[in-house]
Amino acid sequence: MKTSAGSLESSDCLITVSDSSELKIVIESVVLEQFGDQIREVIIQTLSDHNINKIHVQCLDKGALDYTIKSRLETALKRRGENLE
């Protein structure tokens, strides 16, 4: 199952999550060199907040701030039926 949220507009990101037997995070970003680590950290933190550790996350980033990355990931997770309460 594959769900996504967000967009490729400036300051946004498009996050797609799909089934995986392990944690897999792929990031493409216009600011990868400057913020790649930070983006990965936000994704890992958000997943861990919701106790998710086996998933494939793809993030196409157009300069989104942390709150946006977190939000798009949460929306994508919610759309695949994860209970985020």
Binding site: A5, Y67, T68, K70, S71, R72, E74, T75, K78, R79
Partner: peptide, 11 residues
Amino acid sequence: KDSARILIKNF
């Protein structure tokens, strides 16, 4: 609609 709610909440 869901996307906007979550975005604004986190913001």
